[in-house]
């Protein structure tokens, strides 16, 4: 998967995240490896409890890694870091949270919430510059200056999510982990937030790790998609490649679950249901194999042969 023109920003190698100890230990993320290239949007999709958020949180280091490494621009950021590196990483990697109601401090004004990161890193020369910075970012996310003195509970969900976005953007990060930023929002507001995310990406060359479970939104925003099931990567592929040639049965089941906005077709649609018992891994151990075109699938050698046949059928 080496690519000459694309620069790897973040790379995850054999990441394991385990919660609990001893008999109660639960492996939320199991041997996950992938790269994120500069300026792209990589989406992590999978069902609830598949470990998407855990991976995102491992990157911003809320969840410690049990094994494996995370590299940011070639520098290891998992495990213990020196204070200087630690602050550097915090500044450059920001996170947008899922629930806009829970992720803003209800007893602080919007001004404080947005300035929090600026205070921490003293990213301003004087009060005037700080005010100028937050006023600019507030305008950029489509809010008004007069909102600065208000409290989060006075805002609508979409407005709150934009406050959360402003709080990350004002730090001038390079990489943003967006943890289901729109799943708690009204459908009419989703596009607004997605467009803002895209706008900032174009303006500032940001790289996103976009965590979602809604494939239709993922198709709109992402360059590449990682499909994850029970903490393991099932398939990685560029967006259109994945939608045209979904190879892994789990990916197929996810795509077949996308609602079709036509009741006649939707009624007739047969859902493809995935079950791990479809695979026989008793003889051959499965692994993530590159099929070419940046398309990786998890499977045993026999399955991989089969996937290759399906993928390249009619091409050779």
């Amino acid at each position: 998967m080496e690519s000459n023109e694309k620069k790897v920003v973040l790379s995850i190698r054999n990441l394991d995240v385990v919660f609990g100890r001893g008999k109660k230990a639960f492996k939320a993320v199991d041997n996950v490896s992938f790269d994120i290239y500069e300026g792209e949007t990589l989406s992590l999709v999978g069902e609830s409890g598949s470990g998407k958020t855990t991976i995102g949180r491992a990157i911003v280091r809320i969840n410690p890694c049990s094994a494996g490494e995370i590299y940011y621009k070639g520098k290891k950021i998992s495990g213990k870091l020196s204070r200087k590196d630690d602050r550097d990483v915090i500044r450059k990697i920001q996170m947008i949270f899922q629930d806009p109601a829970a992720s803003l401090n209800e007893r602080a004004t919007i001004e404080y919430i947005i300035s929090e990161g600026l205070y921490n890193f003293h990213l301003y020369k004087d009060e005037k510059e700080r005010i100028a910075k937050i006023e600019k970012v507030v305008r950029d996310v489509g809010l008004l200056q007069e909102h600065l003195t208000r409290y989060p509970h006075e805002f609508s969900g979409g407005q709150r999510q934009r406050v959360g976005l402003a709080r990350s953007i004002v730090m001038e990060p390079e990489f943003i982990v967006a943890d289901e930023p729109i799943s708690a929002l009204d459908v009419s507001i989703r596009a607004q937030v997605l467009n803002l995310l895209k706008k900032f990406q174009v303006e500032r060359g940001l790289t996103y790790l976009f965590i979602a479970h809604d494939l239709s939104i993922v198709r709109f925003i992402s360059d590449r998609i990682v499909v994850i099931y029970k903490g393991r990567i099932m398939e990685i592929a560029p967006t259109e490649e994945l939608f045209q040639y979904p190879l892994h049965p789990y990916t197929k089941s996810l795509i077949s679950a996308i609602p079709i906005p036509d009741p006649m077709i939707e009624k007739e649609k047969t859902l493809f249901v995935y079950s791990p018992s479809m695979h026989d891994y008793s003889v051959e151990k499965p692994e993530l194999v590159d099929l070419g075109n940046g398309h990786l699938v998890f499977g045993s050698p026999a399955e991989i042969e089969n996937y290759k046949k399906i993928r390249f059928a009619g091409q050779n």
Binding site: I90, M95, F97, A102, S103, R107, A108, E116, N120
Partner: peptide, 26 residues
């Protein structure tokens, strides 16, 4: 462990300010 405290951690807020701004007002 509420989400806004995690958010403060992601922003690098020192413990003393998390206590005075995120916890005590509540």
């Amino acid at each position: 462990d509420r989400e806004y405290s995690l958010a403060s951690r992601c922003l690098g807020t020192p413990v003393s300010r998390v206590i005075t701004k995120n916890i005590l007002p509540f």
